[in-house]
Nucleic acid binder design. Structure first.
Length: 461
RNA sequence: GGAGAGGUGGCGGAGUGGUCGAACGCGUCGGUCUCGAAAACCGAAGUACCCGCAAGGGUACCGUGGGUUCGAAUCCCACCCUCUCCGCCA
């Protein structure tokens, strides 16, 4: 019942170099087959200006790719054209066959012709597919190109400080958050270790309440003052979603996966952004703004030994995330606006921070431009990242086929997507502890947060 | 988990082997009419890719993937999803 001669034919065709990233490479489980030619990066713009594409990659420290890409692209299109011509002839002949049979004419010559066509077609089709997979594999593994105004640089040392808000207070003998929390008896890493091992925390009593309060506080600001719509999304997602925001195919090792193939979200950016996947929106409903407080799950595979004490770097933490979906002409302004929304939380809490523009070498895979907000931690005596706001341009939108149509236009365009933490709740809790610690080890509750803490002014043992 | 039903264009809903990218209705857009609107009438209208300077031509897509056939929305297989009922459960 299965195809008989066909597979053998296909096998004859081998395809050199098809060991690149194949879609099945990212594991089993769900049906991942949405790859579509010419997504991820705009093949047309690479054709038009290969030098610019390579220059962008070079700023990311990557080698030129346009040569390989365009060669593959050209071969693929040639095959596609050839294949489609055969299909056209087959379709035409098949119609005639129908007509002939009706009229009682002899259709045998046409049948022979189609049979001959069908000798060639599977091989062509197969080759074309394989080239497409190879091409997609390359394109899917290349990061977004940095925006023009992103500073050149190797790592975080080359980031550029944009502004500083608030003045770090000198606290004599400042303690770190875990010292404070453990002394209060409200934060336990031992208890968490018994349950789950390293990189987990158990919060109790007023500290658990503080975590909840912080999240509520942030959500209220983002929804009431910045127009973000609160969302309660799934925390487990399929391959498609993880591919859309570009966790896949490259970063599987950073994620947790269930035995039946779901990915635990590393950030609500994944479900929130994928809300518009495969959509064609009207331009006048833009921008869309979403926010959600969710747990985030990260394997932290590559960070063994980093930030092992305390709750700076955890396998699981709460974060309020903001996602904006905009037209291309809106995204830059939206990026500033979103960053402002994140900063507003820190300002209200009276926490000193600085905002830096990430250099090319420090930016995430999907980002075109990123601002990090770093909060001052007296206990550590340094600024630590508490938010990251990125404009992804159309990079994610291409992957998830998120488009819009301008009023009166016939053609669709890709949307722009942005995401930013507003803020990381766990780290914000750390910042509150360290900045509001008192000599007696108690913690003053920031004024703005008191309504969220039932009026509580101070957390004590 | 058990039993059943079903997945078609923005929506509803036809279509069981050929001229079906898909009837019809609604909605949408343009026009006629009108002082204006409604109604009525006429017309337009899916997405993506390929070839082409263009005009234009072609291919694919009716949940997904395969198969049968000269030809598949229609037949076969597998999978996914949704809905209803029963059971279980937060």
């Amino acid at each position: 019942m299965r195809g008989s001669a066909r597979p053998a034919q296909l096998l004859k065709q081998g395809c050199p170099g098809l060991d690149a990233v194949s879609p099945d490479a990212y594991k089993s489980g769900s049906d991942f087959n949405r790859l579509n030619l010419a997504s991820m990066h705009d093949l047309r713009s690479i054709r038009d200006n290969p030098a610019a594409f390579d220059a962008g990659l070079a700023r990311r420290g990557l080698s030129a790719q346009s040569g390989d890409i365009l060669a593959l692209d050209q071969r693929r299109r040639a095959l596609q054209t050839e294949f489609q011509e055969l299909q056209a002839r087959r379709n035409e002949a098949s119609k005639l066959i129908g007509a002939y049979k009706k009229e009682g004419k002899d259709a045998q010559p046409l049948l022979d012709e189609v049979a001959a066509l069908k000798e060639k077609m599977p091989a062509l089709e197969q080759q074309e597919k394989e080239l497409g997979v190879e091409l997609d594999g390359i394109l899917a593994s290349l990061p977004n190109l940095p925006a023009d105004d992103v500073p050149e640089g190797k790592d975080e040392h080359d980031n550029v400080e944009i502004r500083r808000v608030g003045t770090p207070v000198e606290i004599a003998g400042a303690k770190q958050h875990f010292e404070l929390g453990e002394a209060l008896g409200l934060m336990s890493f031992d208890a968490a270790a018994k349950l789950s091992g390293a990189r987990f925390t158990v919060l109790r009593g007023k500290l658990a309440r503080l975590e909840r309060a912080l999240g509520d506080f942030m959500l209220d600001i983002q929804t009431n003052e910045f127009g973000f719509e609160e969302v309660s999304p799934p925390l487990l997602v399929k391959d498609d979603a993880a591919f859309g925001t570009a966790q896949l195919p490259k970063f599987t090792e950073d994620l947790f996966q269930t035995t039946n193939g779901f990915w635990l979200i590393p950030t609500a950016e994944v479900p929130l952004t994928n809300l518009v996947n495969d959509a064609i929106l009207d331009s006048d409903e833009l921008p869309l703004r979403f926010t959600a407080r969710t747990p985030c799950f990260r394997s932290e595979a590559g960070s063994a030994g980093r930030d092992t004490r305390g709750m700076i770097r955890q396998h699981q933490f709460y974060k309020v995330e903001m996602v904006s979906i905009t037209r291309p002409d809106q995204s830059q302004a939206e990026h500033e606006r979103m960053t402002d929304a994140a900063e507003t939380v820190l300002k209200r809490l009276g926490l000193p921070f600085r905002t830096v523009k990430l250099c090319t070498g420090d930016m995430g895979f999907s980002a075109q431009k990123t601002y990090d907000i770093e909060v001052w931690l007296p206990g550590q005596g340094m600024y630590r990242e508490i938010s990251s706001c990125s404009n992804c341009g159309d990079f994610q939108a291409r992957r998830m086929k998120a488009r819009f149509r301008a009023k009166g236009e016939k053609n669709t365009q890709f949307l722009h997507t942005l995401n930013g933490s507003g803020l990381a709740v766990g780290r914000c809790l750390i910042a509150v502890l360290e900045n509001y610690q008192q000599p007696d080890g108690s913690i003053l509750v920031p004024e703005a947060l008191r309504p969220y803490m039932g009026g509580l002014e101070r957390i004590t043992a």
